[in-house]
């Protein structure tokens, strides 16, 4: 087994040291980098997900979507099959998160050891 499942939609190919899509198998980027660098990214309007504001009085609205001055929605897709790998909620312009940085050497060591034992 060369691929290790990391999240619902992300595998790491240990031989190639690459992030891969768990659904379609396409390769993204080196496993030592952020997987997002190999993905497609899109800023989704809050009202698309949570609906438009509702006017309760003249000039006064309630909304279930985050206020875009405070928070935006960033969607991350597999470039090959379009599955949505992750969604980040960030203030406008805040750097995108490098959320998972595994110790690849330790990971390889662990899985090679497990394979040998199997």
């Amino acid at each position: 087994m060369d691929k290790v499942r990391i999240t619902e939609y992300l595998d790491i190919d240990l031989k190639k040291e690459m992030w891969c899509c768990n659904r379609c198998g396409s390769e993204f980027v080196s496993a030592r980098e952020s997987y997002i660098k190999g993905c497609l990214v899109y800023e989704r309007p809050g009202s698309d997900v949570y609906g438009p504001p509702i006017e309760v009085a003249e000039g006064q609205c309630v909304s279930y979507a985050p206020d875009p001055d405070l928070m935006r929605i960033i969607e991350v897709y597999c470039p090959a099959c379009g599955v949505m790998i992750e969604v980040q909620y960030l203030p406008p312009g805040h750097p995108i998160l490098f959320d998972i940085q595994l110790d690849i050497d330790k990971l390889e060591e662990r899985y090679l050891k497990e394979q040998a034992q199997a």
Partner: peptide
């Protein structure tokens, strides 16, 4: 549609990092 509207991280970051609350 996602594959059409999504852009590469590098391209996205160029415009995104210019924004600010």
């Amino acid at each position: 549609n996602r594959r059409k509207r999504g852009i590469s991280f590098e391209e996205f970051e160029k415009e995104w990092l210019k924004k600010r609350p």
